[in-house]
């Protein structure tokens, strides 16, 4: 029974990682950059939803939508202001800019909302607990896993069927050739950031529904772990992000339960290092040949 409990907790945590990892993996696949600020967009989304529920008295669905809209605008703005001028620059410069952006978001949140942790209000997401046999499952767990599956299917269809999705795949394959085919690369990258950021808002709400402590650093650790998940599954691959996220969540919960609570994070990062050494392209990633 404890084993099943842990497994379900792991799946739920892993689903949150998977949704965040989707944002990382899409941006990395298309813009070839590690968007370090992604974790902090989660935090902003959670804060907006928190304000909507607590101060403005919005219904939960509207609050989540508001968070998604704000995060989408934020994502596009960040991309346009900070990352677009560096499209041709070395990856070191882009990465340092992204780290700067992450700190900018965290410290701006600190100015606006203060350092005191806020407790995320109860919504329909985490209001009830289901009892099946001897198991007790929080409704947040069910919503998280459901959201993960829906998002995953929708994104797969989007990239496979729609015109924008095809453009995204083209840009990630070969940016120069895509440009020659008349694809607006800048707009495609903007749309990618928009989708990733909207997903981050959902992830933020789900994360805070399961772990209801909200502070400016809430997003950074899940963000880094989700990147680990994206690398684990194979960066650039959408099913890979899902698989990596879920596996990483299960590993983390089991590590905490059976090895040591304090070493939970260390175990997650050790997994990342082992994966990169044994199979640098991740579980579902395609090998990339280096061109001179």
């Amino acid at each position: 029974m404890i084993f099943l409990d842990n497994l379900i907790n792991g799946l739920s945590l892993g689903s949150i990682y998977a949704i965040i990892a989707l944002g990382y993996t899409m941006v990395y696949g298309i813009a070839k950059m590690l968007n370090f600020a992604h974790g902090d967009i989660i935090m902003v989304g959670a804060y907006i939803a928190f304000c909507g529920l607590q101060y403005w008295g919005l219904p939960p669905i509207v609050a989540i939508l508001a968070a998604m809209v704000v995060c989408t605008i934020l994502g596009i703005t960040i991309e346009g202001l900070a990352y677009r001028p560096l499209r041709q620059a070395a990856s070191l410069a882009v990465l340092i800019t992204a780290i700067g952006m992450s700190y900018l978001l965290q410290n701006t949140a600190l100015m606006i909302w203060g350092a005191n942790p806020k407790s995320f209000p109860r919504t329909f997401i985490n209001s009830s607990i289901l009892h099946i046999g001897g198991l007790s499952i929080s409704s947040a767990t069910i919503y998280t896993i459901l959201a993960n599956v829906v998002i995953m299917i929708a994104l797969t269809l989007f990239t496979a069927k729609t015109k924008m999705g095809k453009a995204m795949r083209c840009v990630s394959e070969d940016r120069g050739a895509a440009e020659l085919m008349g694809i607006n690369v800048n707009r495609t990258i903007s749309v990618t950031f928009a989708i990733g950021s909207a997903l981050a808002a959902i992830a933020g709400v789900l994360l805070c529904s399961s772990y209801p402590i909200l502070q400016p650093t809430t997003g950074s650790m899940p963000g880094i772990k989700a990147f680990t998940a994206a690398v684990f599954g194979g960066i650039g691959s959408i099913p890979g992000a899902m698989l990596g996220g879920v596996l990483l969540g299960v590993i983390e919960i089991f590590g905490k339960a059976y090895i040591s609570t304090e070493l939970g994070d260390a175990i997650v990062f050790a997994v990342l290092i082992v994966v990169l050494l044994v199979k640098p392209t991740g579980l579902l990633g395609k090998p990339v040949r280096e061109k001179v």
Binding site: A82, P85, L86, Q88, A89, A90, A93, V94, I96, T97, I99, G100, M101, S102, Y103, L104, Q106, N107, T108, M111
Partner: peptide
Amino acid sequence: MLVYAVVLILVMIFTNNPTI
């Protein structure tokens, strides 16, 4: 930390953007 963050971003953009 806020100032540091802005410094990081601006230094990177100013030293790496070809136009600037």
